[in-house]
């Protein structure tokens, strides 16, 4: 298990309470789970994602991530329409462990309300939440 100071928490994403991240990219939003979540889950063996075109509100369940330990829900950090899913995860779910903010991304969405992003936590705020949980 990683100690808090060992977590990879980049500054260019925002974090949700459920340990998802969102990053602005070319007018869209990329979404995935963060380093804390992947470390807690352990080896990810299966990722279940929605189809493009589906619309989810902020906080809605959009899929599941299955580790050796358990099946966990994935929740939208921002609301929007899915414009792309990371199809590489079907054959290589371990990318989520290896590169949670890079090759292990999950969705790209067209955001419904830009204010959703502003309500997410910065790295500093997120670290505070993790410390409070620990």
């Amino acid at each position: 298990m990683k100690e808090l100071h060992e977590l990879n928490l980049p500054e260019d994403v925002r974090y949700s309470q459920d340990h998802e991240w969102a990053r602005r990219e070319n007018g869209r939003m990329r979404i995935g789970i963060d380093d804390y979540a992947q470390d807690q889950l352990g080896e990810i063996v299966y990722v279940e994602l929605p189809r493009t075109g589906e619309v989810f509100s902020k906080g809605a369940e959009f899929g599941t991530v299955e580790s050796v330990k358990a099946v966990s829900e994935l929740f939208m950090p921002v609301g929007g329409k899915v414009t792309a899913v990371n199809t590489a995860l079907a054959d290589s779910p371990e990318l989520v462990n290896q590169s949670p903010y890079g090759e292990g991304w999950m969705l790209e969405v067209e955001v419904t309300d830009p204010a959703d992003y502003d309500s997410l936590m910065t790295k500093a705020d997120y670290l505070k939440q993790l410390k409070a949980e620990a």
């Binding site: 298990m1 352990g42 050796v68």
Partner: peptide, 21 residues
């Protein structure tokens, strides 16, 4: 760096960095 969990009243390793698989 074992990932620890509680089992049978003991704090036990669930897996090590190599991973359960």
């Amino acid at each position: 760096n074992a990932h620890m969990g509680t089992f049978g009243g003991y704090s036990m390793p669930l897996w090590y960095p190599a991973g359960a698989r």
